[in-house]
Amino acid sequence: MRDHPFNPRRAKTLSTLFEQRVLELLPRLRRFAVGLAGHPADGDDLCQMTIERALSRRDQWQEGSRLDSWMYRIMRNIWIDECRARSRRMETFVDEEAGLSVGSDGGQEALVALGDVDRAMAKLPEDQREAVLLVMVEGYSYKEAAAIVDCPVGTLNSRLVRGRDALVALLGGEA
């Protein structure tokens, strides 16, 4: 047996456990955030807001339940609120991207990272985009995805199909 005189370092480790687990989730959280927001910089802003809210509500997370689902739900709710509150700005944002993608000769660096998939995703309604992301990118089951966006499984299923069909049409038939 190892002797364990108590020292403050252990207390620090205890108090940072939640942070440590969120830290491990960060790459996945960023992926979902970029997918929702459609742009890396907006995605990281969304990620930051999500982390801040999660830290402030950490006592609401139930130990033993999935931390990733809980964080995704927070992120998704922040994003929906943002979209509702600033819908005018978001429309402008999407229009700008659509315009750039058509009108530009590709000389602008910002466009390099914006591929066909990003543009097609940007055209989906929010409810379809999040369903597509949760199932097709994040790999959640329909039931888990429905719990994250707080809708019935059948609704999730139909949003997924509508989003998928729109993407297939935009990306050219055989995906």
């Binding site: 942070e19 830290l23 960060l26 790459p27 960023r30 992926r31 990281d44 990620c47 930051q48 790999g139």
Partner: peptide, 23 residues
């Protein structure tokens, strides 16, 4: 195609400003 499109984000370094919120 979608999985492949978003997968590289997992390999990118996480921005310090996000990590700083947690450490």
């Amino acid at each position: 195609r979608l999985s492949g499109h978003f997968a590289p984000i997992l390999e990118q370094p996480v921005p310090d400003r996000l990590k700083q919120l947690l450490v």
